[in-house]
Design a protein around this nucleic acid. Structure first.
Lengths: 200, 200
DNA sequence: TCTTGATTTGACCAACTGGTCAAACCAACG
DNA sequence: CGTTGGTTTGACCAGTTGGTCAAATCAAGA
């Protein structure tokens, strides 16, 4: 289905998406301008619109690419593995995502903050289905006495909240920590937190 | 120092701040327009600018009002109280703030997401000082064996993250939960989480 | 080299942006 | 009732916004 791409197309589309990610993740959709993105991508505005038909199109492409990878860590949580290891592994993978892809995290945060106008449906269908499925697994684990009996949905929310916080509120975290690096301490803390919470 | 205010001034300024809170908290500073705010406030744009000299002024007024009350729950954490009760009380107060003032929470989230251009200094001074002070108290508690030995800064971050998540990602939380109410479950979960984490 | 299709751009547009201003309006007090 | 000072507005402005288009430029295969 993909059309063949010239090298120039690949390079410019990549540059536009990267620039768009920088801008959109900082200012949100409405707060970002094509001129900003074009300049960040090193292209003229008409040239940018030669590769993407509209501002919306760039944003949609970014969101689509994001959602694909964003849910992977949760999908990877394995029913047959050791429960506590699986949950803690998920939390650590999600934290690594915040550390390595903070812009994507902020893009997502901006979208949801603004009421998720572009992805409300995905949240209510795909995401909900995935979460309900994994929540059922966790529930089964607690009923088998393998992890503590806590609400699985709120457990998952807590992992999202804690990990995304380090990407989305990066400025605040760093302002408070001074020059200490955030992620090492976060990783240790997460470990202790869920170790203690989940022990049956 | 306050100038005397007519009833009309009070009503209109309040209307503008309320409308501004609605708009800014959803679209961020750059994504919001004076026309939107004016319409939401039921005023014409020139009339709005009769009460506030600029878009910035409305935003600043909101942020100032917010910061005042936003830090109160942390300030109220009492060195002389029972450690675990104090920390869990703080978490619950912060959660109540998210439930009762979600727009304020999102206004703050938008500001920090965009790099905190208007409040970077407050974060690096007032906030840092307050957090360092409370972190020292928590550290003393753990050294006295009254609470578990966890990094106090990351403990505080975790409370911020978990409570703000329910306001800032409200759309996502509700999409996943379906028609279940979020805050009751959140309160119970928070309680279990910190009870288990903090027990020495 | 020449041609063809991909790429790039300057000029342009209508709608919208934050903000101004003089004139009109209105409430209340003497 | 008339005046005075607070209030409201229509018309307006310069700069910015997302987007268009024809013409110019370029890359690469025949």
């Amino acid at each position: 289905m993909e059309k063949p791409q010239t090298r120039i197309q690949q390079r410019n589309q990549a540059a536009i998406l990267s620039a768009g990610l920088n801008i959109f993740s900082q200012y949100g959709f409405r707060g970002s301008t094509l001129d900003q993105i074009a300049e960040a991508a090193g292209l003229s505005k008409p040239n940018l619109l030669y590769y993407f038909p509209s501002k919306e199109a760039i944003h949609s492409a970014l969101l689509a690419r994001l959602l694909d990878t964003w849910l992977d860590p949760l999908k990877a949580m394995d029913e047959t593995g050791d429960p506590i290891t699986e949950i803690m592994g998920y939390a650590q993978r999600k934290l690594a995502l915040s550390r390595d892809y903070p812009r994507e995290s902020r893009l997502f945060a901006n979208e949801v903050l603004q009421g998720a106008p572009h992805i409300a449906e995905v949240l209510a269908t795909d995401l909900k289905i995935l979460v309900d499925e994994k929540a059922a697994i966790i529930r089964a684990w607690s009923e088998a006495g393998k992890v503590a009996d806590v609400d699985p949905h709120h457990l998952i929310f807590s992992i999202w909240a804690m990990t995304q916080h380090y990407a989305d509120f990066d400025v605040q975290v760093r302002a408070v920590l001074g020059d200490r690096e955030p992620y090492d301490g976060a990783s240790v803390f997460l470990d202790a937190l869920y170790q203690r919470l989940l022990q049956p």
